[in-house]
Simulated scan of single mutants.
Amino acid sequence: MSPSARKQKPRKTPPVSGKGKGGGSPSQDSSSAPLHRLIYEQLLEEIQTGVYKPGERLPSEALLCERFGASRITVAKAFQNLQRDNLVRRRPGSGTYVEKPAEQSSLKFGLLIPDLGSTDIFEPICQGIMRSPAARSHSLTWGHQNLDETDKLKATERLCQQYIAQKVDGVFFAPTEYAAMRDEANYRMAAMLQRAGIAVVLLDRDFERYPGRSGFDMVGIDNHRAGFLLTEHLLKAGAKRILFAVRQNSASTVEARMAGYREALFRAQGDCGASVVSGDFENAKFVQQVLNRHKPDGIVCANDITAARLMKTLVSLGVKVPEDIRMVGIDDVSYAKFLPTPLTTLRQNCAEIGIVAMDMMLERLRQPEMPVREVLVRCELVVRESCGMSSLASSK
């Protein structure tokens, strides 16, 4: 009897939920990834290690639902992704079978991230790209230097030219922010890549300002929703005079967060005159002037680094968080929970952004004429002491 004709039994491997033999909880990266992605990665590993061999039938959806504690829809989505990547083939009335690996040439991709090393979200995004199951037969290269803003942009443009000379198959591009000449530099690099016919996937942000949209695929988060949710959270916590704190020359993502902040205030309080403050939040004199003028009892910070700098200054001025001012940020960087008052923030699933980016890149290379896409990865509200509602921890 052939392997494909034998009755299938579920393999006794540890479930992705972390509740199998040995107990324990999944890692932060694993727990924050969608269940269909975890099922996909588990089955992919079993296919690649020979647990399931070419031509062999995978367990039925019902058995996998039981194994992973998942719904039929979730398991079906994992199967669809395996089929999309030509790893399995579904035979109506028979089941799902492992495909014979096709000969695949290795592709070379470049990372073009001027703010790598200075913006905390990009390192885990890069890790997500590299650990994507779809990236295992391909290579990824990047360059990074700790330079001032002008030299950093020049070095990034030189790196862009190197990628073109090397004829890489695609580039993951995160347009720079904060630098005074960022718009011109971002446009130049995008135009160079487009003229060279190199596929581009944008990470986190577009270089076009709203309502404009570039002709490149992009993966990030819903920044308008992020600003709305954090403002709504502070309102529920009892704050009434809420500021939005932003660093000068920030990216277009911050503009979307401001729009969400304004909409949340408008829905809750009507035309209440939302206040956006931009400046040096490490300058105690400037911060004191802001406090005297606006008398805020809540502050939505454009990101965690802004929150960290502002909180340090507030502490030096004798302002208590959250007793005097409630604060929230965005990103959930590694140090957010170690600030003088642990920071309530919206966690970006950076690893998932990286994995999705690689999937988008490969699909763009397979179908270069398909419409431009924008994929938004969901965020999670992480409630800590800075908002004054840590006992009501929840996720969105």
Rank of each mutant, 00 (worst) to 15 (best):
A239T: 12
L362F: 06
S32T: 15
R225N: 12
E369V: 09
E123G: 12
V375S: 09
S275L: 03
G117Y: 04
L229G: 00
D217T: 05
Q145R: 08
K337M: 13
I73G: 03
K240T: 09
M360L: 12
G22D: 08
L230A: 04
I73N: 14
E56M: 09
R326K: 15
E45P: 03
Q367L: 07
T13F: 11
E363L: 09
D280W: 02
R89D: 01
M192I: 06
D222E: 14
F216A: 10
I113Y: 04
K9Y: 06
R213C: 11
E149W: 07
S31A: 06
A155N: 12
L234W: 04
R257S: 08
K19S: 11
G170Q: 06
S334H: 13
Q127H: 04
A134G: 13
A302F: 05
M358G: 05
M1F: 10
N283R: 01
K53Y: 00
D332P: 02
F286K: 12
M389W: 06
L265F: 00
A308S: 10
F207Q: 08
Q28Y: 09
V377S: 00
V88S: 01
L38Y: 01
G227Q: 03
P368G: 02
G260C: 05
K236L: 11
D29F: 03
L314P: 04
I164C: 09
S334M: 11
M361W: 11
G329Q: 13
R213W: 07
G212V: 08
H138C: 07
